[in-house]
Amino acid sequence: MIDSFQRMRWIAANTFLEAVRQKFFNAVLLLSVALVVGSVFFQQFDFGSSELKFISDFGFGAVFLFGSILSIVLSTQLFFNELDNRTALTLLAKPIHKLEFLAGKFFGAYALMFCFTFSLSLVLAGLLFWRETVLMGQLAEGFDRGRLIRYGDVFVFGFIQWIKFGVIAAMTLFVGSFAQTNLFTIVVSFFGLVICQLQYIARDAYLGMAAGAGRWLVQGLSWLFPNFQLFNIGDQLVYPVEEPLALVTLGLITAYGLVYSVAFVLLAQLNFRSREL
């Protein structure tokens, strides 16, 4: 078992190194940082202390959007590069299980998403800190109870998004396990992402529907796809919410994401084990 983890670890480390050197990752990271930093543009509008809300919304949006794109595209590239270049052949000719290979690819991509999310959270927290300090000097009255931003929540949001990106990466690997091309994997994964984002509507809709094919369809959608709205909690963190989100809720969301990540990697193995290379 320990050997198995060691092998996954080495493959993950190699995958991470390969990914970090990819131009796509570096470009997206730079763009995301630029977008977050660009939110200082909001000071032009003189929103007062509410400028912090705009900055945090924008920053969260950048993490959400670019993180989702990166999860899908990078996971696809890292997986298919191995198949197309036949490095997968060399690796799978070694005494490793296909599941170890898949899990290694997943963990490598997941580690990269951690770096991305953490970097962006750091930039966002720094930007909020700077603007809040400036605004506190300008508008003492709005800050009579001290700072308004809960900085820990910035990293909590980043953590929850990272958990979601893990589910996205695992879903992408699952699609890639039966897909023949990069493009198909990316397109289908993006559709999957959109459905997961909107799945909650199907759930809520089926409760009010009369029995029939329509109800079965929406019920099926709500069963097959994880609920990504659970991870969309940016508006309940940081500012200007009074009460932080309960730890229990965060724990449940984390557990939900981790279980789905593992499940999709195992489902990927279901296809990949019989895939002929």
């Binding site: 609920n227 659970l230 909690i233 309940q236 557990a255 939900y256």
Partner: peptide, 9 residues
């Protein structure tokens, strides 16, 4: 796991 978290959110 999902239901209580969803209700809280």
């Amino acid at each position: 796991v999902e239901q209580p978290a969803w209700e809280a959110v």
